[in-house]
């Protein structure tokens, strides 16, 4: 059963690999050129890799809550037609509760930046 997907992955990797190999022949120089990062014609004053100020970190927490919820959503989606109304009510009460949290975070400005 997994033969197909493994073959797909292998072909994709082989394809990317051979393009890189081919590039070694066709490029004017196979060695990557060492350069400074582009900064409008100036040298970088610092390394760019740093503690980046992610302004939307509140949204990431919110996202996490909902993302974990997807764990329940997929199995639920498969059986909801069978289980009937109670399953719908239970799930959407839960989603509703989560969404109240989202609305609260939104009103607090958690989805706005700057």
């Amino acid at each position: 059963m997994f033969d197909g997907i493994i073959t797909m992955a292998a072909i994709a990797l082989a394809g990317v690999g051979s393009i890189y190999l081919l590039h070694g022949i066709t490029a004017i120089n196979a060695d990557p050129l060492a350069v400074l990062p582009f900064q409008s014609g100036w040298q970088p004053e610092q390394h760019a890799l740093s503690r980046y100020h992610v302004r939307w970190y509140l949204a990431t927490l919110l996202f996490l809550a909902f993302d974990v919820e997807m764990l329940f959503m997929y199995p639920w989606a498969v059986v909801v037609a069978e289980l009937g109304a109670t399953a719908i009510i239970e799930m959407f009460l839960f989603l509703g509760a989560l969404f109240v949290g989202v609305v609260w975070a939104w009103r607090e400005g958690g989805l706005r930046w700057v």
Binding site: A9, A12, L13, G15, V16, L22, H23, T26, A27, I28, N29, D31, P32, L33, A34, V35, L36, P37, P44, H47, L49
Partner: peptide, 25 residues
């Protein structure tokens, strides 16, 4: 294919290439 590749100073080369090539895969 004719253009040369680049390597920026102190780049995380492996993760950098992994990102680009990973999209196709």
């Amino acid at each position: 294919m004719r253009q040369r590749r680049r390597r920026t100073v102190e780049a995380d080369g492996m993760l950098w290439r992994l990102g680009g090539a990973g999209l196709v895969v």
